[in-house]
Amino acid sequence: LANLVQFPCKYALWGCERILAHTEKADHQVNCEFRLYSCPFPGVSCNWMGLMNAAVPHLIDQHRIITTQQGEDTVFFASDIFRPGIFDWVMIQCCFGFNFMVVLHKRDRYGDQKFFAVVQLIGTHQQAQNFVYKLELHCPRQSLTWKAIPRSLQEGIKTAILGRECLMFNNSVAKLFAKNGNLSMNVKISRC
């Protein structure tokens, strides 16, 4: 009987109109854009849960340290990057009608500092496939570039950092590109 019957998504109340066979229900619901998401702001223990389209208003209201910038091309100027400890630098870049969270994460294990930079679309996995982001570090004689499809809200950025699917560099490379302890990173988002 279950094979004959189709079921609504459990997030139908929030707007999901999918009708599913019982075999496809679980997979769909994990990535449903109408499911509740936890706060995407990295490095804080925030208990917020909400719909995808409520995530950016939450970030701007509750995490005021976030800087928001319009435009496809920006220069992300991370200040004081060598300060000891584990830190995140976070900015929201708005373009093409979407919000992209740009994150620089610094790990510090007994002085061994590593940096990870990644961009996450505050949107679905499907929407993220339409974009490419490029991160660039420049100094007079060198440059370092990373180009990839942005993470989605479903995928999160922690998996990108743990999976090394991001721009990564260590302390000595950071010293090449930093000036007075600050790091300028070009961020360019484009449609693919």
Binding site: T67, V75, F77, I81, G85, I86, F87, K106
Partner: peptide, 24 residues
């Protein structure tokens, strides 16, 4: 096509919450 100079955005660090560090 006029080239727009990208705007520089100063981003301040925020400390990673201690209770999350063990999950790293």
């Amino acid at each position: 096509r006029t080239y727009r100079i990208p705007k520089e955005v100063r981003v301040e660090p925020h400390k990673f919450a201690a209770e999350l560090i063990h999950r790293l």
